[in-house]
Design a protein around this nucleic acid. Structure first.
Lengths: 277, 277
DNA sequence: ACCAGTCGTCGTACACCGTACGAGGACTGG
DNA sequence: CCAGTCCTCGTACGGTGTACGACGACTGGT
């Protein structure tokens, strides 16, 4: 309507469509730059610090200027999420599928640990280009295990679900706050000051929670970060379900071992790549 | 200082301590009632609708009244979280440990599906009484697998991590929104309207993402809800690592099967409880 | 040279949020 | 009668996301 050239802006849709920028233009403010600045802010002061005003100020720009490059704050979060996901990508994928899945998983975990705010964004993700690239890497590995596409998806999801769940628990656990008291219990004193594992010791009342009590007396910490065990078990299960999958160093599946704990360790150590293609 | 009786309120600590209520008192407004009303609100209109004003209005009460029963909005969220976790508790725990873990996991999933807002709260959980009860149930099962407390904790975490990760993906996936475009790519047209699996088809550019492209042409949906497979694999791995664990119906671990897909199904169907104690 | 139109920036204003502060009512024990 | 506690709540402050429209710089056509 308004523009003589054809594409430009369609009325109901996005604001700027092409933005291919006639050669000599230096777009000092791009959606990506916004996302990067927002990530810097979130890394430094948490996701709550990422407000449009703060972000604009950190870019020495008016608040409403941001809304020219980004439709919503939601879109800004999507861009942050997409940029964040670039940290999940491997440059090179190991040949052994167990090693490869392990490396992708650990890369993902490191990525989350570097940017803890991403967990809050992860609840509402969009399918961005980096997410697809990440899936592509996962799929590259899964296709070595089976040819069934549905099974590939199941494998991918199971691994990435474990990674996300574990990372979420660990990261949120390290921010544990003062606990709430037993509701349907008479209050037992004015509550002592907090321990390093806050609330755990005070809340476990022994007679109602015998197993937790036993755990406590055994000196077992509830917040153990042993992620490799879980992944090892899952990969063991996947491997057992796909005996035909080519592995560099297959082992006898289900071989009995004297100590159960050592079996878990064995599965874990085996995850390290023993050989490159 | 101010109070003649001893406990009452200590200056630096919580506001009300005992609130044991001399018999005939009907405390029409309790923290739990606040939490329940907030949950009702969140179920109906999402977590964003839970503001102190809206909640107070839904209780026909002044906004600041809430702050007598609750220190923060954070404390309100903690109470909601604790109340939400009561939905994870089983009345009866199956005798078979695989069946028990499966039932706890599925109960947890159902709980999240009923209250999707809980995922946003899950990022910052506190150790409330219901969380402890939930852990206690998990531990009851894990203690049948191994006597090593650390290993028990590892087992519990691996299962619950998988559950949380999977649930998070599923729930956030069913709220997929319009995707963002490839950033470092020339824009390819003004983007068609959205499909039921939004963005997936448009973004997969074939030459850069061959595996995803193959998945797409195979008609494979990316958002498959097959949670049982992942849990089956994980439990297979745990079982293989603990051959001594007493099961009602143990099977030959790692027995080769013709079709890998069917092995997964076999592991899945086996999870159903075959016998009660 | 002029001018229409787009690009990019931004000030103001509005509704909503969490909550600090303090006033005030109801009830209770001395 | 009074002091004290429990409970309620109105007002106000600083924060948020963003709709709206004004404003300058640049550009291509005439």
């Amino acid at each position: 309507m308004a523009a003589p050239t054809e594409p430009a802006v369609e009325p109901g849709g996005r604001r700027r469509a092409g933005q291919v920028s006639p050669p000599g233009c230096r777009p000092s403010l791009t959606p990506q730059r916004l996302a990067l600045a927002a990530i810097e802010l979130a890394d430094a002061e948490g996701l709550a610090a990422v407000s449009m005003r703060r972000l604009a100020a950190s870019l020495s720009v008016g608040t409403m200027t941001l809304y020219y490059h980004v439709r919503d704050k939601d879109e800004l979060l999507d861009l942050m999420w997409n940029e964040f996901l670039s940290g999940h990508l491997l440059e090179e994928i190991p040949a052994d599928w167990r090693a490869a899945l392990t490396e992708i998983a650990q890369r993902t975990r490191q990525s989350y640990q570097r940017h803890p705010w991403a967990l809050n964004v992860a609840v509402r993700p969009t399918l961005g280009p980096n997410k697809l690239r990440h899936l592509e890497q996962y799929l590259t590995v899964a296709s070595r295990i089976t040819d069934d596409p549905d099974e590939q998806v199941r494998i991918i999801h199971s691994v990435s679900d474990l990674v996300v769940g574990c990372t979420l628990r660990e990261l949120s656990g390290q921010a544990y706050r003062a606990p709430i008291k037993h509701t349907d219990h008479r209050g037992d004193g004015p509550a002592p000051p907090l321990e390093p594992q806050p609330g755990f010791d005070e809340l476990v009342t022994a007679e109602e929670l015998p197993r937790l009590q036993a755990l406590r007396t055994a000196g077992c910490r509830l917040l153990t970060p042993r992620f490799e065990h879980a992944l090892g078990w899952l990969l063991d299960g996947i491997e057992a379900a796909h005996p035909g999958a080519g592995r560099a160093h297959p082992r006898a599946v289900g071989a009995p071992a004297p100590d159960p704990g050592l079996v878990g360790m064995a599965a874990t150590t085996r995850m390290l790549p023993k050989k490159r293609a």
